[in-house]
């Protein structure tokens, strides 16, 4: 049996509908990210084994990946995470003020995706295609899979921004979109290390 309530304000707390420990949207997104993490882990493992078996990597005749320019792009993506985190903190204090940092995070993410597309065009022109070699197959599969996740997470963030603009964004929805974007950011350095370097 619970102790008698001595703080009258608590009566309101206890009678209020039970607040979940974690917002459902956040927990759902976390579980989805767990599944996706294993997908990327499988791809990274397969790539590691194939690469370790190759005499020369990238295979002869295949273009080298743009390591330096992608590093700059990586910086933009990594920067988007603290900006989004800051937007989350502002969101908890004053929702309206979170519009600008959230837009900045979306802008950095959009820059990353657009720059990736630009690099892909260059690589395709140089002869790196999905069927040109195992190098090409893994590159487009792994980086393409990440790009698909980045685009989906960006759509979620833009949706969150629109809801915030209309002052209809809930903390759970914001958290869910943010977790998805953090996942996209967290996976990228691993892919850059394994695929590009």
């Amino acid at each position: 049996m619970s102790a008698p309530i001595t703080n009258p304000e608590l009566e309101l707390v206890d009678e209020a509908p039970g607040r979940p420990v974690v917002e459902s949207a956040v927990l759902g997104t976390v579980l989805f990210c767990v599944v996706e993490a294993m997908l990327f882990a499988g791809l990274v493992s397969a790539h590691t084994i194939v690469r370790s078996n190759a005499v020369e990597w990238p295979p002869p005749g295949q273009p080298r990946l743009p390591i330096e320019s992608t590093l700059l792009n990586t910086a933009a993506l990594l920067l988007s995470a603290p900006v989004l985190f800051y937007a989350g903190r502002v969101f908890r204090r004053n929702r309206r003020d979170a519009l600008r940092p959230l837009a900045l995070a979306i802008g950095l993410g959009a820059f990353f995706v657009a720059f990736q597309g630009y690099e892909w065009l260059g690589l395709l022109r140089e002869g790196l295609t999905l069927t040109s070699s195992q190098h090409g197959s893994f590159f487009y599969l792994m980086i393409g899979m990440h790009a698909a996740h980045a685009v989906a997470a960006l759509v979620a963030l833009v949706w969150a921004w629109q809801r915030l603009f209309d002052l209809r964004l809930t903390p759970g929805a914001f958290g869910g979109a943010a977790v998805f974007w953090y996942f996209v950011v967290a996976v990228w350095p691993v892919l850059y290390w394994r695929v590009y370097l």
Binding site: V34, A37, G42, V44, S45, T48, I49, S52, N53
Partner: peptide
Amino acid sequence: TTEENRWAFIGTTVFMSVLPLGILFGI
């Protein structure tokens, strides 16, 4: 076929075994 390949097998086996457990522990 090579020492690097052997270590890749061992490394990825450990990675794929530990990762889900680590994620579950983290959550």
